[in-house]
């Protein structure tokens, strides 16, 4: 062995990329997704090959995908945001109200308002968590009920119907480009932007550092509070966008829109390999996790699994993902210790 030289990684960058791709959690989940789609298609070929099947496969996960991306960013900082379902309901109802009260309002303005309101609600979460030093689980559980309460008070038993909203807006939910639904394109663009930021920007890397060891992050002189607040704002903004998308896609909004979807978003992130204790995982994984969750729910009836067991399968998936994480983490740390001893 050379004495003073650092042993540089012996692999070329292409090899490294390939091996990361093959062993990554994201690939494993993608493989499961492909298997599920394949099984369902064998059972019933219109699951994939019909026009509707193809469209649903891509369109159905788009709302959860937006939420899972935001959730992943928050979980990476060792926090969690349980209020996204309520934020979604609030902005979805707000979207409808805007069209009812201001019939001539441009669609772009409505989308922007939805995002801004979501961001503001996220800011409330972030401020409470970062400045109040109260665990995010508790704070966002509280705001989950508060935000939902606002919707209930505001909407009452009213319902926004498709006839209340302009066709130009509703067509966003149905239009496609090159046979890919518009909303899916939107979600994927958001995914790529956030994923790119997390990978290549200082701010993005600092989110990982904060989640990995908050005390160390403080000693490094990182702006921990500002970054955590930023993560919550982003998560809220994406939930706000998801609310607008919800209104466009379903064309009807009531006060209970999106109830329980926050847990699906957490589930999607966890299945996709975002460690619940922060510091590791990617939004790509969370996005594939969201896709898998939605697709499995659609595929199980076709494969012939009963209603009751469909929920159980999702549960098993989440527990399986965490157990797998644990096993891999133990293996990884053993390997890393071995690598150290060899060096």
């Amino acid at each position: 062995m050379t004495e003073t030289l650092v042993a540089p990684s012996r692999k070329s960058s292409a090899q490294r990329f390939a091996s990361t791709l093959l062993t990554s959690r994201e690939s494993a989940i993608a493989l499961v997704l492909i298997l599920v789609v394949a099984f369902a298609t064998i059972k019933q070929d219109k699951f994939l090959v019909s026009n509707d099947g193809w469209r649903d496969l891509l369109l159905a996960p788009s709302i959860l995908l937006l939420l899972a991306v935001g959730q992943a960013v928050v979980i990476i900082t060792r926090n969690v945001d349980l209020s996204v379902g309520s934020i979604l309901a609030l902005t979805a109802y707000l979207t409808g109200r805007l069209f009812v009260d201001q019939p001539n309002i441009p669609v772009v303005v409505v989308i922007l308002i939805g995002i801004l309101v979501g961001a503001a609600l996220g800011l409330v979460n972030g401020l409470l968590v970062a400045l109040g030093k109260v665990p995010a689980l508790v704070i966002t559980l509280g705001t989950l009920y508060v935000y939902r309460g606002v919707v209930l008070e505001w909407a009452g038993s009213n319902r926004i119907n498709a006839s209340d909203m302009p066709d130009g807006f509703l067509s966003l939910g149905t239009k496609s480009f090159l046979s890919i639904p518009l909303l899916t394109i939107l979600a994927v663009v958001v995914l790529i932007a956030v994923g790119y930021y997390l990978r290549t920007a200082r701010g993005g890397r600092e989110l990982y550092a904060i989640g990995s060891d908050p005390d160390a992050a403080h000693l490094y002189g990182l702006k921990v509070k500002r970054r955590v607040i930023g993560a919550f704002v982003l998560c809220g903004a994406l939930a706000g966008l998801a609310g607008v998308v919800f209104a466009a896609r379903y064309g009807s909004v009531s006060s209970n829109a999106g109830t329980g979807i926050e847990l699906q978003a957490v589930g999607a992130a966890v299945i996709g390999g975002v460690a619940i204790f922060g510091g590791s995982g990617t939004v790509w994984g969370a996005a594939i996790g969201a896709w898998l969750l939605i697709t499995i729910n659609r595929a199980l009836p076709i494969i012939g699994v009963q209603d009751f067991w469909q929920q159980a399968v999702v549960g098993v998936l989440i527990i399986g993902a965490i157990v797998l994480d644990r096993l891999l983490a133990v293996r990884r740390s053993r390997k890393l210790i071995e690598a150290r001893d060899e060096a």
């Binding site: 990982y208 160390a216 460690a275 510091g279």
Partner: peptide, 22 residues
């Protein structure tokens, strides 16, 4: 340099070196 090293276990050695000033 503190008595107890303060590193981010989930990040690479390089990232630990340059965190915040990459």
């Amino acid at each position: 340099i503190y008595q107890e090293p303060t590193l981010f276990p989930d990040l690479s050695v390089t990232e630990n070196l340059f965190m915040g000033r990459q």
